[in-house]
Design a protein around this nucleic acid. Structure first.
Lengths: 216, 216
DNA sequence: AGTCGCTTTGACCATTTGGTAAAAACCACG
DNA sequence: CGTGGTTTTTACCAAATGGTCAAAGCGACT
């Protein structure tokens, strides 16, 4: 009994099917949430029969858990790259843009994560209070350092990070709303979002001084 | 057969039970999503039996639909109050704070809405492209006017609104994450959030000019 | 007190859904 | 080409779930 659980070198077919299943599951889970998704849907999307699906994974939970674990790593990458040695504003802007790109390129992952958070993170609360918190604490320290050195306006590092998460992930998680309001037009809105957010974080909304309009 | 559907004046009991049901349903739907919620859970939370529950509502969908419809109205109120005659920055800040308060005081509503968006808004896509879009278009026009009058930095009105939604609702929708990172301490973080967001939208992150630290 | 209409209950159903068992089909490798 | 392990399928379950129905209970008003 090989049963995917085994740690032996996986067969070509095993790797192949496992990937297909995870991809299908990501699609389904991210759209319907854990309970809303059914094994039949996933099996169908993966092009397998339900029992066949269960040959590769222990059960529904196992698939979901696997997805979530893999996701967290990718998800935190942009923040990991925040360079303490870099120029503060530039670093933050770069981080923001990386996150925005992730929302554009991996909306399903974003929604999977959002779903889990909404339900109270019953399946990854450990990672949140562990891995995630550790990284955020570390980077918050970096930002605090910048503030104390007078290289950044005196802001709360944690809420700064939250706001970046919120604004960027919004474009993936609330995509229907965004499209519904902007019109179903091409995805050009990601470009506009990048421009807007850059300006917001850099300069705020204060109007340019009265006499100085057009070219500073 | 009275069946709550009837438009006649509702009985005292009818009003009372209907309220209890909707409140219970809000609790359950907002935490588990539409498919994740069960009639038994809702009936239980409302203190009724399942058949009794179904005496007041046509079915699961009907309850959900009712909640969503009522919600939308409350939800858009803060934006409706944005006053075209007010001072731009002050108006936007006030709007932001109103939204933040809603996240603090009505997190369940926020999550219900978020859940629906995540699933692709299958049950309120009409309202989004209708009522909601109309209001947003109107207020975006107001903001655009402020920009053109040079009373506000030249920003995209739509993305400005999106960012306000995102940052404020984040505190309700991702509450577990926020608490997990900040520590389960008192809800003081809403105060900090208000302070941070005010600063972000007003002045951005640029550090104060070198010589000018402490008192402008 | 009696009665008519609103409210509640208990017993049931049909479907859906996560999951299992065992046989059949397949495939790589000697 | 046969054989041992890997995959896949067919046939089933038991539990959960949305929903129905008819009978019983209750309450307000005459």
């Amino acid at each position: 009994m090989a049963r995917a659980a085994a740690k032996k070198t996986p067969t070509r077919i095993q790797r192949q099917k496992t990937r297909a299943i995870l991809d299908a599951a990501l699609e389904v889970f991210s759209q319907h949430g854990f309970r809303g998704a059914t094994l039949d849907q996933i099996a169908d999307a993966a092009g397998l029969s339900k029992p066949n699906l269960l040959y590769y994974f222990e059960g529904k939970e196992a698939i979901h858990r696997t997805l979530l674990h893999r996701l967290l790593d990718t998800w935190l990458d942009p923040l990991r790259q925040l360079d303490p040695a870099g120029e503060p504003l530039r670093e933050i802007r770069a981080y923001l843009l990386r996150k925005l790109e992730m929302s554009r390129d991996y909306p399903r992952e974003s929604r999977l994560f959002a779903n889990e958070m909404l339900q109270g993170a019953p399946r990854i609360s450990d990672e949140i209070q562990g891995e995630l918190k550790a990284l955020v604490d570390e980077k918050a320290q970096v930002i605090r350092g910048w503030v104390e050195a007078g290289r950044l306006a005196p802001v709360d590092p944690y809420h700064l990070i939250f706001s970046i998460w919120a604004t960027t992930q919004h474009y993936a998680d609330f995509e229907v709303q965004v499209r519904g309001i902007l019109g179903a037009g091409a995805d050009g809105h990601f470009h506009d979002a990048a421009r807007f957010l850059t300006q917001l974080y850099t300069g705020g909304l204060k109007p340019p001084a009265a006499g100085a309009r057009r070219r500073p």
